[in-house]
Computed example of a mutant assay.
Amino acid sequence: MAFRKPKPVPFKSAGELDAMEAAGVIVGRALVAVRDAAKAGVSTLELDAVAEAVIRDAGAVPSFKGYHGFPGSICSSVNDVVVHGIPSKDVVLAEGDLVSIDCGAILDGWHGDSAWTFGIGKLSKADQQLNEATLMSLEAGIAAMIPDSRLTDVSHAIELGTKSAIKKFGRKFGIVDGYGGHGIGREMHMEPFLSNEGKPNRGPLLVVGSTLAIEPMLTLGTEDTTVLEDDWTVITDDGTRAAHWEHTVAVTEDGPRILTPRP
């Protein structure tokens, strides 16, 4: 039988990648501004206003606002909230909180999407390790964004990044079940879905110009989550804390290119 070459992960031209990075740079600036503003006593709604101002001042549009009815320009997920936390005047940050901020912007029709997690004041050792483990998983996934890899090579790399963090810190981290990264370009969420674990060498082919949003989410315990009644907020079932890191990344001949750099 004839061997069918797998279809490629959707790809962009060099000029289109530059346009995506222009959107991604704005996202990076918004994330840094939010982190600078995030202090004990500040509400997540105030952080949302900071991000929206940075995005709109740059001539871009917040991609989250109004997305399937989402009310914010950021997702602000505190402590046991994994992702999709809705900014609120009632969620006021406190010393020791673990805060995940996810943000997106559209510029000239192109999307940037990125997230990171940080502490308010001093984090517990466990939270620090959780956060570092999630970043290690992201970096491992980014490193797998090379030509002629397959989609699940990235998933497998993320999983190996988590396993290496488990070994480094001598503690278990849960890989959140059912959530992951995605294709991105002229829409925020596009095919294919990118799992944060799995067997290598399956799925679509990575080619020069392929773009994915890579986003591992880890917990200090369970892999199981529940969506609250607001239809957005995702919390850990066991109440343990979660971390979330994300970059929009392109495959190039010279290695992975992060399209959402932070200043």
Results as ranks from 00 to 15, higher is better:
Phe11Pro: 00
Ser149Tyr: 02
Asn79Gln: 08
Ile158Phe: 05
Ala250Lys: 10
Lys172Arg: 12
Pro200Asp: 05
Ala157Glu: 10
Val249Cys: 14
Lys7Ile: 08
Gly112Arg: 09
Ile26His: 03
Leu212Tyr: 01
Leu212Met: 05
Phe118Trp: 03
Pro10Phe: 13
Arg202Trp: 04
Gly183Asn: 08
Pro200Asn: 06
His189Phe: 15
Gly174Leu: 00
Asp102Val: 13
Ala19Tyr: 13
Leu135Pro: 00
Asn79Tyr: 04
Lys172Pro: 02
Pro204Phe: 08
Glu132Leu: 06
Ala37Ser: 13
Gly170Asn: 10
Thr260Met: 11
Gly121His: 08
Ala30Glu: 07
Met1Glu: 12
Pro71Asn: 03
Ile166Arg: 03
Trp110Thr: 10
Leu17Met: 15
Arg29His: 13
Gly96Ser: 10
Glu16Phe: 14
Arg241Gly: 00
Leu220Ser: 00
Gly119Thr: 05
Gly85Arg: 01
Leu259Gln: 05
Ala19Leu: 15
Glu197Pro: 00
Lys12Asn: 12
Gly239Ile: 09
Leu220Thr: 00
Leu17Pro: 11
Asp102Thr: 09
Thr233Cys: 07
Ala33Phe: 07
Ala242Val: 01
Trp232Ala: 08
Asp230Ile: 02
Asn79Ile: 07
Leu218His: 03
Gly198Thr: 11
Leu135Trp: 06
Leu135Thr: 03
Thr248Met: 14
Asp177Pro: 00
Ser195Gly: 12
Thr222Ile: 13
Pro261Val: 13
Val61Ile: 15
Gly85Pro: 01
Cys75Arg: 01
Ile26Met: 09
Phe64Glu: 02
Leu205Trp: 01
Ile101Lys: 00
Gly66Trp: 07
Ile142Thr: 07
Glu187Ser: 13
Pro6Gln: 09
Ile86Arg: 01
Ser149Cys: 09
Phe193His: 13
Ala143Asn: 06
Glu215Lys: 03
Pro10Trp: 13
Asp153Phe: 10
Lys167His: 06
Val82Phe: 02
Phe169Arg: 08
Arg262Glu: 15
Val249Ile: 14
Ser124Ala: 12
Arg241Pro: 00
Glu52Cys: 06
Leu138Thr: 03
Thr225Leu: 06
